[in-house]
C-alpha cells in the first residue's frame, strides 16, 4: 500500500529542528555566555534539573488559569444572552467592552494586587479580564449573524424566546464560540503569568522572575518553553472538543 506523507506537518517540525541546531551552533562556536543566551541543550538540562519545581509552579499557574477561564466562559454566556435579548444593553455595553480591552493589562494588574492581595484571586481576575472579551464578542457575533429566515421559521413554529435560544441561537453560535475560545486560550496562561510577575510566591511567573533576577537564563527559557507547551496543549484540547461538538460541520466540510 502506498504511504502518503503529510508534508504540512513535516515542514514546521523541520523548521524547528533547523532553528534549534543553528541556535546551538551559534552559542557554542561564538562562546555566547549563558547569562546572555543559553544553548538549547542547557535549557533542556535546566528543565530536567528543575522539573519538580517547575511542575509545582506550573500547577499553580494552571489552577488560576483554568478557574479564570471557566469564569470567563460563564460570564461571557450570561452577558451575550443579556446583550442579545436587550438591544439597549448591547448598545450601552459594547463600546465599554471594546474600551476595556484598550487598557493595558500590565497597568491594571498592580491595582488588583493592591485591592485583592498577593493570593490567587487577582491572577484569576486578570485571566477573566483578558479571556472574557474574545469569548463574549464571538458569542454575540454568532447570535447576531443568524439568518432572519431561520428566525421567521421558528416564529411560524410558534417557538418561545427560550426555545429559539436553545434550539437555534445557542447551537448556531457554537461555531463562533469555539473560534473565540481558541483566541482566549492563547492568552489564558500568559495573563496568569503577568499576574504572577506582580506579586505572590508561587506560579511559573514567580519562578521565571526569580530565575531572571539570578541571571539564570536557562531556567527563564525553560519556563518559557513550559508556558508555550501548556498553551499549545490547551489550544489543541479546545480544538478537539470543538471538532467533537461541531462534528456536523467538520463532516460537512470533508464531504
Amino acid at each position: 500500500m502506498k504511504k502518503y506523507i503529510n508534508t504540512d506537518r513535516i515542514y514546521p517540525i523541520v523548521g524547528v529542528i533547523i532553528t534549534l541546531v543553528l541556535w546551538q551552533l551559534i552559542v557554542d562556536f561564538r562562546n555566547v555566555p549563558g547569562y546572555i543566551l543559553p544553548s538549547p541543550t542547557k535549557i533542556a538540562s535546566a528543565l530536567i534539573r528543575d522539573f519538580d519545581l517547575i511542575r509545582f509552579h506550573s500547577s499553580r499557574t494552571l489552577y488560576a488559569s483554568f478557574i479564570g477561564f471557566g469564569f470567563s466562559i460563564g460570564l461571557a454566556f450570561v452577558l451575550a444572552i443579556v446583550m442579545d435579548s436587550f438591544e439597549i444593553i448591547k448598545k450601552a455595553l459594547y463600546p465599554l467592552l471594546v474600551i476595556s480591552q484598550t487598557v493595558p493589562i500590565i497597568a491594571i494588574a498592580p491595582l488588583l494586587i493592591i485591592w485583592f492581595g498577593f493570593g490567587t484571586l487577582p491572577k484569576i481576575i486578570i485571566v477573566v479580564i483578558v479571556c472574557f472579551f474574545p469569548i463574549v464578542i464571538s458569542l454575540v457575533h454568532g447570535m447576531e449573524s443568524i439568518d432572519d429566515d431561520y428566525l421567521r421559521l421558528f416564529k411560524t413554529m410558534k417557538a418561545t424566546k427560550l426555545q429559539i435560544f436553545y434550539h437555534l441561537k445557542l447551537p448556531f453560535s457554537m461555531v463562533h464560540f469555539f473560534s473565540g475560545l481558541k483566541i482566549a486560550a492563547t492568552y489564558m496562561i500568559m495573563s496568569a503569568v503577568i499576574g504572577e510577575w506582580l506579586g505572590g510566591d508561587r506560579g511559573i511567573g514567580v519562578y521565571m522572575l526569580r530565575a531572571k533576577n539570578a541571571y539564570a537564563l536557562d531556567r527563564v527559557f525553560a519556563s518559557i518553553l513550559v508556558i508555550v507547551i501548556m498553551s499549545i496543549l490547551i489550544i489543541y484540547a479546545i480544538e478537539f472538543i470543538g471538532i467533537k461538538v461541531l462534528h456536523w460541520q467538520t463532516e460537512r466540510d470533508e464531504e
Binding site: D149, Y150, L153, F154, M157, K158, A159, T160, Q163, H167, L168, P171, M174, L246, W248, Q249, R252
Partner: peptide, 19 residues
C-alpha cells in the same frame, strides 16, 4: 432551512418538540 446540526428526524420532529 434545515438545521445543519440536527439529524433528519430531529429536524422533522422539531415543531412537535416545540409544541
Amino acid at each position: 432551512l434545515l438545521l445543519p446540526w440536527k439529524t433528519v428526524a430531529s429536524n422533522v420532529g422539531l415543531p412537535l418538540k416545540l409544541k
